[in-house]
Nucleic acid binder design. Structure first.
Length: 367
DNA sequence: ATGTCC
């Protein structure tokens, strides 16, 4: 059964019938099209309902910024680091014990804040948050290259089967909600760039920088705990605003597609697809899907098994001391990532470069 | 998503 999407020339939905999209998300798309200044919306195959609008879309507006499209987790995104190790030489139990200590937050090094474009004010007020994963769908994951799909691209980057990688999904922690609250806006009306929108964007950009630094600190800590040298490779936000001063491009759970390769993770029990986006794909607003997308909301997962010890096709170890969170984030709460990426390929938005397999997933060390 | 309900 296919969804019926709003008949609106401004809307493109990059999903086939195979990627089931909840009716509530489609209705939210309709509301998004009614917001002031919206000139185009690109919906991705991982689209699902969110708090103030659908997650998994890019929204282009003319002269107006809508802080509640981006929401609280300003700057959230994915960072991929390369590690100088091979999975066949990895001692899994030792790696699990090492990554369990990601929950400790003692002795964080703030020396890199200034170089990363984070002000001393923010760095000092949010020092305790720096290098912390957070909750929800955030994670740090040790991965290995499982399969090469695009051999020339992998040869070009030196990516080989069995290599180890770190994928970090996190955001601006408490800074994002603080920025959102500091810029009151009417739902649907947003803020014109010349009446408060520009001021929001200054604070927003600081949160984006803080989120990026937070991911880098997390990756650096994880590499150090594993005793492996790590090299930053990719950093791709999927919850933010970019603007040329007139057109305002919001991404809400949609990865930026003009920064090079993008890691598109499935659930904690599924592969991550490393893809090469086409930044000029017509109608896609320089964006692609940011993950598998939820197919079941968090509340509906309670009362089910947390699946922490259930074997999954990937066989990764999961560190998650919080049973409630483990249930919410169970693999069956998410769509099929292979299907989502197939939809991206069908529509010419991206090509798969390699499949990355989770080895150890860190969610949270505390309940 | 959130030093998430003190």
């Amino acid at each position: 059964m296919t969804n019926s999407y709003p008949a609106d020339a401004r809307l493109r939905v990059f999903a086939t019938a195979a990627s089931w999209i909840e009716g509530a998300a489609v209705r939210q798309l309709e509301q998004t099209l009614q917001r002031r200044g919206v000139v185009a919306v690109a919906a991705m195959p991982d689209l699902h309902p969110g708090h103030k609008g659908p997650v998994g879309c890019a929204v282009l507006a003319d002269g107006v910024v809508h802080p509640d499209i981006v929401g609280t987790d300003i700057g959230c995104g994915m960072t991929l680091w390369r590690l100088d190790g091979l999975v066949r030489r990895l001692r899994i139990d030792k790696a699990v014990r090492a990554l369990e200590r990601l929950g400790d937050t003692d002795g964080l090094d703030l020396s890199e804040a200034a170089a990363a474009g984070v002000s001393a004010d923010i760095a000092s007020r949010h020092a305790d948050a720096l290098g912390t994963v957070g909750g929800g769908n955030h994670f740090v994951e040790l991965q290995t290259v499982e399969r090469i799909i695009d051999a020339p691209s992998c040869a070009e980057t030196g990516l080989e089967v069995g290599a180890l990688l770190l994928l970090v999904h996190s955001g601006s922690r408490a800074l994002g909600p603080e920025v959102l609250a500091r810029h009151p806006h009417a739902h649907g009306e947003g803020l014109r760039l010349d009446e408060g929108g520009a001021a929001y964007l200054v604070d927003h950009d600081a949160a984006v920088a803080f989120a990026r630094l937070n991911r880098a600190v997390l990756a650096k800590r994880a590499a150090a705990l594993l005793g492996l040298d790590g090299t930053p490779w990719l950093d791709v936000p999927h919850n933010h605003v970019t603007t040329d001063g007139v057109e305002v491009l919001h991404r809400k759970g949609a990865a930026q597609a003009d920064l090079g390769l993008v890691p598109v993770p499935g659930s904690r029990g599924a592969m991550t697809y490393l893809v090469r986006p086409d930044p000029d794909a017509p109608g896609a607003l320089r964006s692609i899907a940011h993950g598998a997308g939820r197919k079941r909301d968090r509340a509906s997962m309670q009362g089910k098994s947390d699946q922490r010890d259930r074997p999954n096709p990937v066989g990764n170890r999961v560190i998650c001391a919080d049973a409630k969170l483990a249930r919410e984030e169970a693999p069956e709460a998410y769509k099929n990532i292979a299907r989502v990426v197939a939809d991206l390929e069908t529509h010419g938005l991206a090509r798969t470069v390699a499949l990355l397999k989770p080895v150890v997933t860190f969610k949270t060390g505390r309940a």
